[in-house]
């Protein structure tokens, strides 16, 4: 039996995907909404049967009435359950970049239109469920947790929207495929720098130079916006109240290049991971650095923006330029 399910699962997922293509925004309608009784719902049915048997045996008309009322409530509840999620709009926000293997909270907005909605939960998996007791008329922002596994465009798994409103007897759910326009950076691997030196006699990989510990502190300068926060002299700030930035002697006067070719022979993904580690390290140490990839070169620079550009280039290495390639 289990193997039948296992065999059918890919088909089911493919069917779901055809029904719910990847989108930035999804509005729930009857095509996407599924409803089924919860275990409490089945228990409720047992309760109805009990009352019904008593009604028959005691020929008790009010017990009959109560039983039928309970049954009608169940049916009315189906409509309320459906109504509560139907017409909900879920808009994907822009995800912050994240390193592969790290948890990320994906932002999204839920709008109910003209009426408030109640008791809605969102989850990518059962470990992290975002529950909203109420979605007000003007919508609400929410974050749903998820762990990115693979570098590249962030492809969120199917998002489950679930609600047992109003009575907990019925569960309605919907599968959403949302595009968060996020990027997953490679998981950084920290290794000593290696340099690629071009020579007439052939390519040559340069010495391993560990930079740690040989930065020389030179002095303070006035803080200007954009200086790395790491280099702000907080102690001085606490003492004197002025913001100063520590300046370091840059032993490597000439900027360095982080080069794809320095890692020849290493498997692609691992290469990207090592390069990622180097970018982070260079940024941390406030080096001026550039990145050379087979089809892309990012010139020398430093700062947060430069780092992000390099990381994004690593993340999207070898991938089409937008996530919605499957549109």
């Amino acid at each position: 039996m289990a193997s039948v399910f296992a065999a059918l699962k890919p088909k089911y997922i493919a069917w779901l995907k055809r029904r719910n293509p990847l989108a930035r925004e999804v509005e729930l309608n009857q095509k996407r909404i599924f409803i089924f009784p919860t275990s409490a719902g089945f228990f409720y049915a047992v309760l109805m049967v009990l009352v019904f048997i008593n009604a028959i045996n005691y020929k008790n008309n009010l017990m009959f009435m109560l039983c039928f009322l309970l049954a009608s409530v169940f049916i009315t509840a189906i409509l309320h359950t459906y109504n509560n999620v139907s017409g909900l709009k879920i808009k994907a926000g822009h995800s912050l970049p994240v390193f592969a293997g790290e948890p990320v909270s994906l932002p999204l907005t839920i709008e109910g239109g003209q009426r408030p909605r109640y008791g809605i939960s969102l989850s990518f998996n059962r470990h992290s469920i975002t529950h909203m007791s109420m979605v007000p008329v003007d919508g609400v922002r929410a974050q749903v947790g998820f762990t990115a596994r693979q570098r590249g465009w962030l492809i969120a798994p199917r998002l489950k929207l679930k609600s047992v409103y109003p009575l907990g007897l019925l569960r309605t759910w919907s599968w959403l495929y949302l595009d968060f326009h996020g990027v997953v950076y490679p998981k950084p691997v920290h290794q000593p720098f290696k340099y690629f030196v071009a020579q007439e006699s052939g390519d040559h990989v340069g010495e391993v130079v560990d930079q740690r510990g040989i930065d020389d502190f030179r002095g303070f300068k006035d803080y200007t916006p954009g200086d790395p926060l790491k280099h702000v002299a907080w102690k001085q700030y606490a003492k004197r109240g002025e913001l100063l930035t520590k300046e370091f002697e840059e032993t490597h006067q000439s900027a360095h290049w982080l080069d794809w070719r320095a890692l020849s022979g290493v498997e692609t993904e691992t290469r990207l991971q090592i390069l990622c580690g180097w970018v982070l390290r260079s940024h941390e140490d406030n080096f001026e650095y550039g990145l050379r990839l087979p089809q892309r070169t990012i010139g020398l620079g430093r700062g947060d923006h430069h780092r992000d550009e390099c990381l994004k280039a690593l993340a999207l290495f070898g991938l089409p330029s937008f996530a919605g390639g499957s549109h």
Binding site: I53, I56, N57, Y58, K59, N61, F64, M65, F68, L69, A71, S72, V73, I75, T76, A77, H80, P166, L167
Partner: peptide, 23 residues
């Protein structure tokens, strides 16, 4: 919910066939 359920409940009450006591 209860008020919305009453019409259907009355309908069921009137038309669901009654059976003799089971025991």
């Amino acid at each position: 919910i209860l008020l919305q359920s009453i019409p259907l409940a009355i309908l069921l009450f009137v038309f669901v066939p009654r059976v003799a006591p089971l025991w």
